[in-house]
Design a protein around this nucleic acid. Structure first.
Lengths: 242, 242
DNA sequence: ATAGGTATACTTGTATACAAGTATAATAGT
DNA sequence: ACTATTATACTTGTATACAAGTATACCTAT
């Protein structure tokens, strides 16, 4: 069997991280992309061989993925669960739930600094579009929402975010990569959506926030479609490499 | 230094679990109870010596605790964060958030079986009171809420629950142990509160659910007080054992 | 006395070794 | 042919070994 050295996850995002964290990121995105299909049984030993590391970081990665419901640790082997359409919708349920809660808190605090920070990120996103850098765009997109969530300084809400973030991040990443090739216009639409978010935070106008969230929610169907296409492409590519 | 073999966490709950999981449970409850105070720096080697195990399960436990925000993994040692009053309130924020979401979904499904299951758990709680078993009562209490949450079959909401559950469980456990000694009447009040939950689910009457959640929320202040007393007692006991 | 460097005793992260348990397959007996 | 048993090749969980890096304390030179 030919070894595949290609990594799906941006290496520079995890360059300083430990092997365990890096492995988790790579395995996660392979699972979400469908490159490792649901139902696959992962063995610690085989993974260790494949990635040429010991079982220690592999175990660490598998524990992480299990806590994200990406895999299910069983007696003999870790069974891949992955993400289906339903899961993605549920993931966005949670994000909507969190962000609604966060927004209610934001209404009570001074948002001057937050708005400034978000504006900066927004411009970063614009630059990312200009240079057609889907990875950078995704990074800034996730950072945008993380910044909003962190602003209310609520440790358990942030904990939930941290739990959902890796999956969210991979999902957005895959979606954006697809759109860059097929639906470039989507990027400016997403940018406008973020403008709306900023406006809602600045004006503290609930209606605008609802509108922003609604737009974001509508975009989920797109994400689902992109993921499906991404899976098709990757598996085809995989077959060619056989 | 004299070795303390006393375990705070009910051993029978984790008898079949791996060493790593057992250690996480015990360390968690020691941190929440204040027996291991915030700011303490935990070393993997020292913990391994203290519990007479290798570093492998210790590392596993520390990773788990870090994901629950109980500790913060740093370059040199794991720093204990613990729970302050604010954290507990935030934990209940999340629970309220989850349960509100869950209830909205429950309104749309058939609840016959759920109500029956909850009634069973309610009776278990009654038995636990009768035999003055605070641990059993806590177990059933947590199970009650978990059963409600699981009923809507939402993987990510359940994931959040699973992330918050261990801390919640330890918190309730400590609180119930205290109340058993000082405020026995609280138990019947909690039982009535659960009756209200069941009624709200059965009748699908939002007002009753709001009332039930409100009562539960009011109880948080009690939990905070109990925890504080529990911490006082345990640290005193600790000093005596020195 | 103080600044700078070095030795030392820690720390974590990863690799390897071993033990106990489980599924699979081959084999022996009927 | 089929069933039961045994051998084997896996699996995970835990212990230990090693490597690389970091803080502390001490020691030396000025």
């Amino acid at each position: 069997m030919e070894k595949r050295e290609e990594f799906l996850f941006p290496l520079k995002w995890i360059a300083n991280a430990s092997t365990g964290v890096r492995l988790a990121s790579e395995l996660r995105i392979r699972i979400i992309s469908g490159l490792i299909p649901a139902g696959t049984v992962l063995s610690e030993n085989k993974l260790a061989q494949e990635f040429e590391v010991s079982r220690s970081p592999i175990r660490e990665a598998l524990k992480t993925l299990a806590s994200e419901n990406m895999i299910r640790l069983e007696r003999m082997g870790a069974v891949v669960i992955g993400l289906n359409e339903q899961d993605i919708k549920e993931l966005y349920d949670v994000r909507l739930l969190i962000e609604t809660f966060v927004y209610e808190r934001i209404l009570k605090i001074d948002t001057t600094k937050l708005v400034q920070e978000l504006s900066k990120i927004r411009e970063m996103m614009e630059v990312a579009i200009k240079y057609k850098d889907a990875d950078e765009f995704s990074y800034q997109d996730v950072l945008f929402h993380e910044t909003v969530i962190r602003s209310i300084d609520h440790s358990y809400i942030y904990l939930i975010w941290n739990n959902a973030k890796p999956v969210m991040e991979s999902l957005i990443l895959l979606s954006m990569r697809m759109r860059l090739e097929e639906k470039v216009d989507d990027f400016s639409r997403i940018l406008k959506n973020h403008d709306l978010y900023i406006e809602a935070i600045q004006t503290k106008d609930r209606d605008i926030m609802i509108q922003a969230m609604h737009q974001n929610f509508d975009d989920v169907q797109g994400t689902v479609d992109d993921l499906w296409m991404s899976q098709q492409m990757l598996t085809k590519k995989g077959e060619q490499n056989q």
